[in-house]
Design a protein around this nucleic acid. Structure first.
Lengths: 180, 180
DNA sequence: AAGCCCATGTAAGCTGTTACATGATTCA
DNA sequence: TGAATCATGTAACAGCTTACATGGGCTT
């Protein structure tokens, strides 16, 4: 149940149309909460229905016209309430770890195939880490004065450390497999 | 599309009934691929239908009787093929990171509420890390001779390092919030 | 005029979650 | 015998993914 809150957050940062939101979900917000344009349009409809957001320049033609949305007070209140809500961490579902475990029972032929996949993932995570480090360098100076900036920096720090975990573990995994 | 492969892996490690599988998904397999008993029973039906697994002691009564399943050659082949298959890493969806980002726009009142939640998650991840370290100590000695053991140890190493990431980042996040 | 991108959607299907149902066995 | 637990399911729904549809504007 977090997609509506992700959208409310994005719209509070900047009122946007559906497609603009989609773009931003491919960049910043999507780094920790991904969504496709189909999900976003559906959810925008629900949020408008619920009176939490409102379309600007209202009377555009239904098809082909751009609709910008902004958050209403009810939406802001809902988001603030959600932020403080308690929720269990979701159990992990990671296909790569599962694959390794499967390789242990599927026999040695399977192990050769998985090595390539591990290397591919390593490259992807290294690229993501580099991008985060670049964002860190450009967007965050030595001192953040505003509370909001410090929170945003914390989120980025999470992304960085998570990618460091992946690159570290994948490197270790490849080294282990190669010395067999 | 990984649940059937998780089940095949578990059944190859040891033929089991639905409930036994459920138990094991709460322990070892579930540490990186969780599933409820409803999912498991549904999937067991599909796998049997597809000729990848088979029920032992076949003619037990439908209700209340225990059914043990074992993997057929077709199932083993499917798993081996899947292990080598290439797949994009799933985009991240992490509610806690999203919450922090939302807190940045939802105002300072929201920040107070989130601190408690961060502390709660920290305790959970510390407990999980301790459990993994205990497993490491008990199940894996200084030298793993068999390939399968080394793969299983790699998976556990992944779990350990992932929990270290969480405890480290959550500690940093709490420290940052408290010095505001 | 044809092809491309922008922008907003619809529809179908799959996966996962939550709530409930049913019979068998065990133990107080 | 009643309650708890074991064991296997059914049903309904929510969320996400994939494929396709529709119309407008811009370029060549």
């Amino acid at each position: 149940m977090s997609l509506p809150h992700a959208i409310l957050t994005a719209l509070l940062e900047k009122p946007s149309s559906g497609l603009e939101l989609t773009r931003r979900f491919d960049r910043s917000i999507g780094y920790f909460w991904s969504a496709t344009h189909q999900q976003i349009y559906r959810e925008l409809g629900k949020l408008e229905e619920a009176g939490q957001i409102r379309a600007l320049r209202s009377a555009e033609p239904a098809r082909g016209g751009k609709k910008e949305y902004e958050v209403l007070p009810a939406g802001r209140a809902e988001l603030a309430e959600w932020v403080g809500r308690s929720e269990e961490p979701k159990p992990i579902r990671d296909a790569l770890l599962l694959r390794l475990r499967a390789a242990a029972v599927a026999g040695p032929d399977a192990v050769a195939g998985i090595e390539k996949e591990l290397g591919r993932h390593l490259a992807l995570h290294e690229a993501q880490l580099a991008e985060y480090l670049d964002m860190e360098r450009r967007q965050f100076g030595p001192d953040q004065d505003s509370e909001a900036d410090r929170l945003r920096y914390l989120v980025l720090r999470g992304g960085i450390e998570l990618e460091r975990f992946w690159t570290g573990w994948l490197t270790e995994a490849l080294a282990t497999l190669r010395t067999r």
